[in-house]
């Protein structure tokens, strides 16, 4: 039985999530993968204002295919999360609480998730067509020059994910 989560996910709901829980997310999530993470971290290093407030937010590691004229978004499954391991602690220190990607993360990253009482969710890799059906709206809000890697604000309904690292630092892998 999946747990229904509405964004913004409040602290108690997030902390209650346990490894292996299947969830359905409804609300707002932001996309960012390799290049966007580099830009966000570079901006923080220069004390610039970020394109969106990270406080309590959800970041999804995805670079979608282009939307056709009748679609909100193209195929949009997760990319491997380990490549974001060096950036995520910096973003969690700024308030990021939920990350969605796929695959294992480093031991150091698990410790950071625990420290910030954040959670790491996984979506199933390679099911981008199915996941695209849960995205009702997508708007590029930063770094349009990055194309697929631009930051998009997504409105999703019942986006399926699995808790892979919970706020106590338990990992599914």
């Amino acid at each position: 039985m999946e747990l229904l989560l509405k964004t913004p996910i409040n602290d108690s709901d997030r902390i209650a999530l346990k490894v292996g829980d299947e969830v359905l997310i409804t609300g707002t999530i932001y996309t960012a993968r390799d290049a966007a993470h580099q830009n966000l971290v570079d901006s923080l290093a220069k004390s610039e204002i970020l394109p969106f407030d990270l406080q309590g937010q959800i970041v999804y590691y995805v670079g979608p295919t282009p939307a056709k004229p009748n679609q909100a978004i193209g195929s949009c499954g997760p990319t491997s999360s380990y490549r974001m391991d060096k950036f995520s602690p910096i973003l969690m220190a700024e308030g990021l609480k939920v990350m969605i990607g796929k695959g294992e993360r480093s031991i150091e990253l698990i410790e950071e998730v625990k420290k910030h009482q954040a959670v790491y969710l996984i979506a199933i890799g390679g099911i981008g067509a199915l996941l695209s059906k849960t995205v009702k709206k997508a708007e590029v809000i930063a770094y349009p020059e990055l194309g697929s890697e631009a930051i998009r604000k997504l409105e999703v309904i019942n986006f399926p994910a699995i808790v892979a690292i919970d706020s106590r630092g338990n990992s599914i892998f």
Partner: peptide, 24 residues
């Protein structure tokens, strides 16, 4: 459950003409 979703995904991709995976 993962395998079920992978199988469902390829049906949606074929019927609705959406790439199977965003990584083409």
């Amino acid at each position: 459950s993962v395998l079920a979703k992978i199988i469902e995904n390829q049906k949606i991709a074929k019927e609705e003409n959406i790439p199977l995976c965003q990584d083409t």
